[in-house]
Amino acid sequence: MRILKKSFIFGLAVSVWFVLWVNFLVRDLFTKGQLAEHVEFLKASRHGKYEIVYGKRFFEFLTFVNESIPRGSDYNFRGVEPLSLEWRRGVYYLYPLMMSEDAEYLLVFEKPGYSMNGYKLFRKFDNGRFILKRK
């Protein structure tokens, strides 16, 4: 009897486990849009995958920065919240360019009309995204 009771409790626990697993899996895939996200990634090119992860506008800007700034230069962001996930991804992506508080280049993101004393426009991607260089 005791063994049967144990077997029943064990079977019940396994059933609950299975139901919860299926429930959360289905919820993530369909209700939270994970399936649609998978399809999006599956269809995307290599470049497109980065655009999805970093955000199209931010990734375009990072690519532009990478092509514009000479190797060995240092930079700082304007318009990207320090230590945010976006900031972290930017720092990671741009390496071997390195961040610095007193940087030669300022990477201005989504701040139209931004200016700073001692810096002049170096290259412009569009009105909200451009690079300033120390004079």
């Binding site: 992860v53 972290r88 990671y92």
Partner: peptide, 27 residues
């Protein structure tokens, strides 16, 4: 496997600690 390989390294610690260090060491 599918989830790991369908996107680049992007999680917070993955880029700011592990990915960054490996990129530095490799380059």
């Amino acid at each position: 496997f599918f989830r790991a390989l369908d996107k680049p390294i992007e999680a917070y610690d993955a880029v700011s600690i592990y990915g960054l260090k490996s990129k530095m060491l490799y380059l």
